[in-house]
Design a protein around this nucleic acid. Structure first.
Lengths: 195, 195
DNA sequence: CTGGGCTTGTACCGAGAGTACAAACATGGC
DNA sequence: GCCATGTTTGTACTCTCGGTACAAGCCCAG
């Protein structure tokens, strides 16, 4: 794939809205051309097709997730505190890129079938969170889990799906509210203990 | 839509595999015809198109989820115990219908765009779990959450995504293992407390 | 045995993804 | 200035596939 010029990349972000609202299948290349103002021939000059446009958008956002998560993971504090930071990081990106995140979740299957994207999700999220959990276990601040990788996935699922409810209804995602709710759930669980 | 005869419905379940493996878009009606042995013309006699075949498969499985979840919700015991039962119920259905569940998660966006299916997911899962959480709060066994609905969604996300990791790698989903891991996560959280 | 709905083959239509290509344009090295 | 290389875009085309049309055969209840 040729390097996409900046002005084109910017315009493309509105395509994410189309993908998120109507699904990839229902979004015609001509729709993208119309909405972005990039002529169809130009789109095909840079991308082999819809799928690649989607991958391009995902790549961008996943890079951001990777960066923010990496910072959160490497921040100082207990593993629990860093995990809370990771959750906050994910929510921050979801709030910044609502359309792409909606599309990403809505097309999870498709994303998983693009090897590059699947690898990025893994490297950007599951892998760091997994080792964060492992750290926490050895350091003694987190509970021993039978399988840290699916632990990481469970955390990802909890954050993503509850954030999604805000993305599809409200436009503004109240990060603080969700962050504290999900963090409490993930760290302390739903069961109430008498203090 | 005409009532689909049983022998046809049975054959259709193999279509779920196609949808889950290659995605709905990549699955041609003729592929479905070939894989199921149901001629294309017959498919169009019963369904208006791909989308309706998918909805048919989802409807079936979501009914099962609704039933199992309802039983779990109405079982006796504390809200926490019943929530654990709900998680187990969801995993049971996912293990029974791996292909459809993979397709359902992979096509979450599409499922959400079919109003009937969106309503079913809501009624079968979010709604009962939400009121289960509310019950638990009033009865004092569960922590007060700011928004029970997204609490329910978070639980759903945690269960679904971690189960997914098993569905796409192993074929057999080790229910007990995941159930206890996710239940612990949801009820008691990751943070380790000194007993 | 006959009329209705079921089942299926075959032929067809139209939308839209992707390709081909050529004309314009921009840019930078000579 | 001028050529070479790469970008940008319009237009016209092909081809796959979803969906429709339809007719012939089938099965079964009345």
């Amino acid at each position: 794939m040729r390097t996409v010029p900046a002005h084109t990349a910017v315009k493309l972000s509105v395509a994410a809205e189309l993908f998120a609202d109507h699904g990839v299948e229902q979004t015609k290349i001509e729709d993208i051309a119309a909405a972005t103002g990039i002529p169809k021939a130009t789109l095909y000059y840079y991308f082999a097709g819809k799928e690649e446009i989607l991958a391009f958008l995902f790549r961008d956002t996943l890079n951001r997730v990777a960066d923010e998560v990496a910072i959160a993971v490497e921040s100082e504090g207990s593993a629990a505190a860093r995990l809370a930071e990771v959750i906050r990081a994910q929510l921050r990106v979801m709030a910044e890129q609502p359309a792409i995140c909606r599309a990403l979740v809505g097309e999870l299957g498709r994303a998983g079938r693009i090897p590059e994207i699947a690898a990025m999700i893994h490297a950007a999220y599951y892998q760091p969170v997994q080792s964060l959990i492992e750290d926490g276990v050895t350091e003694g601040s987190l509970r021993q889990v039978p399988d840290p990788e699916s632990g990481a996935m469970a955390v990802f699922g909890a954050v993503t799906i509850s954030a999604l409810s805000y993305l599809v209804t409200d436009q503004a995602l109240d990060q603080e509210r969700i962050a504290s709710a999900v963090t409490t759930l993930v760290l302390d669980g739903l069961r109430l203990r008498q203090r």
